[in-house]
Design a protein around this nucleic acid. Structure first.
Lengths: 233, 233
DNA sequence: TGATGAATAAGTCTGACTTTTTCTTGGTGT
DNA sequence: ACACCAAGAAAAAGTCAGACTTATTCATCA
C-alpha cells in the first residue's frame, strides 16, 4: 500500500498532494500555512511538515512573507513514486499512462539487453517461471493472475539489468500494468502474441542473446503503445 | 545553485543528506531525532522537518519507539535530483556517473526520434545554434563554452520530445555532462567525431528523419559509454 | 507461553518570538 | 506634477521551548 497515511501529516498529504497534482491549484496559486492548518484541522507544525514534503517534491515553493506557491507542472519531480501515484489517480491519468509507457519503451529494451548479459541463473529461472505463469493465466479471464506474473516478469528484468536506475523503475512499471488491467477497458484476455513474446524473451535472456532480447522487448513495448492508441487515438 | 540552504532545515539536509547517501550510516542504522537536533544545534521542529524530507526521499523511515532508521540503498528515490546531486558529490561518483550514462543511452535515442517528429521550428533553430556553439568551442581548450552548448543541446532535444518524463531528465543530463567536464579527467578538446555527430543530429531532427536521429544519438551515447570505460575500465 | 505493564522515542499541540520580504508612505529633488 | 528613493509598517514563514499524547517494544511475571 501507499507509504502515506502514517501520521497526521501523511493524511494531509493524501488529500493535498492529489489536489495539487490534479491542477486544482493552478501554478502560481498561493496557499497559507495557517489557513491550511485550519482547513485540515491540524497544528501548524504538522502542516509545516506536510509543506516540506511537497516542497521536496518541487510541487510547491515556500517563501517568506508570500506563502506557499504552487510551482508549474514542468518543475515537478515527476519520477517521485508518490507523485506518480497521485497523478495516476487523478483526471489526467490517460496522459500520464501514455508518458510512462513511452518511458518504458525506451528503458525496457536496453534493460533486457543488459539482463541477457548479467542475469544470474536464479533470475533466469524466476523469469521462466513468470513467463510460465503468464501462459497459465492467459485464457479464461484470469486477469489478476496474469497481471501478477506480468509485473514480476518485468521487475526481474529491470533488476537483472544490474543498473540501479532501471531497477527503481520496477514500481512504475507495476503501476502502469496495474492501471492498464484494472482501470482501463480490459475485459478480454491478453493478446496471444504478447504472451508468446514474453516466453521468447525469457528464452533469449537465458541464452544470453542480448540483441534478440532487446528486439523482443521492443516488440512488446510497441504492442503496449498500440494498445494505448486503440483506447484513446 | 542548489535549492537547499533555504532555512535551517535545508542546512541540516545539506550535511545529513550527503552523509546518508554516502553510506556513512549503513542501512538499518538508527538515528534519534533529539540527538540529531542537539548535534546540529537546531530545535526539534526543524529537525523533524528535515527528517520528513529524508523520509519522502525514502532515505530513512521514522517509526515510533524505534527512531529514524536508514533504508537500504535499493529503496532510495534515486531519481530525485537532490539525491542525485548528493550522490554525485560523494565517493561513489564514478559508479553513479556510469548508471546515469547508461540511463541516458536508453532515453536519449528515443527522445531524439520523437523530437524529429515533434520539434517546432524554434526548437530546430535553437538546436542548430547549440550545435554551432559546440563547433565554435570545440578547439583550444574552451571547455566551459563547449559544455554550455552541449547541455543546452541535449536539453532542447529532451524538451522537444514532447514527453514530460524525458523532459525532466534535462537536469540529470546537465549534471552528468558537467561532472564529466569539470571533475573527471578532461583536459583535452572534445573528440571531433562527437562534435560532428551533434551537428548531423541537429540536421536529422530539422529534416524530421526520426530513425536517423535515433541512430545518431545511439552513436553519441556509445561514445559517452566508451569514454567512461577508458577512465575506469 | 502469553498477558501485563513500564519505558521509550516519535508524534502532536500551543504560544511566543524572530526574520525576511514586500508594500506603503512620505519626503526629496528636478 | 512626477519620478525616485529611503524609512517604516505589515505580513507570513521560520524558529524555538515545553508540555503532553500515543504507539511500540521490551522485560517481567503469572
Amino acid at each position: 500500500m501507499s507509504t502515506s497515511g502514517r501520521g497526521l501529516h501523511g493524511r494531509v498529504l493524501e488529500t493535498l498532494g492529489p489536489a495539487i497534482t490534479a491542477g486544482d491549484y493552478p501554478p502560481g496559486s498561493v496557499l497559507r500555512t495557517d489557513e491550511l492548518a485550519q482547513r485540515f484541522d491540524v497544528s501548524r507544525s504538522v502542516m509545516r511538515e506536510a509543506v516540506r514534503v511537497l516542497e521536496s517534491m518541487h510541487l510547491v515553493e515556500s517563501r517568506r512573507r508570500v506563502g506557499v506557491t504552487v510551482r508549474p507542472k514542468a518543475e515537478w519531480n515527476v519520477y517521485d513514486p508518490q507523485v506518480i501515484r497521485w497523478r495516476l489517480a487523478g483526471s489526467d491519468r490517460p496522459h500520464q499512462l501514455r508518458s510512462l509507457t513511452v518511458l518504458r519503451s525506451a528503458i525496457e529494451p536496453v534493460a533486457a539487453g543488459l539482463a541477457a548479459k548479467h542475469a544470474t541463473p536464479e533470475q533466469c529461472a524466476e523469469l521462466t517461471a513468470c513467463a510460465l505463469g503468464m501462459v497459465a493465466n492467459s485464457k479464461g479471464h484470469r486477469l489478476e493472475g496474469y497481471l501478477f506474473h506480468d509485473i514480476a516478469f518485468h521487475r526481474v528484468i529491470l533488476n537483472a539489468s544490474g543498473n540501479e536506475m532501471f531497477a527503481r523503475l520496477g514500481d512504475v512499471v507495476a503501476e502502469v500494468l496495474t492501471g492498464r488491467t484494472r482501470h482501463e477497458v480490459m475485459f478480454e484476455d491478453p493478446a496471444p502474441a504478447a504472451v508468446t513474446l514474453h516466453v521468447r524473451l525469457a528464452e533469449a535472456i537465458r541464452e544470453g542473446d542480448a540483441t534478440h532480447a532487446e528486439e523482443l522487448t521492443r516488440e512488446i513495448a510497441e504492442g503496449a503503445l498500440q494498445e494505448l492508441d486503440i483506447l484513446a487515438p
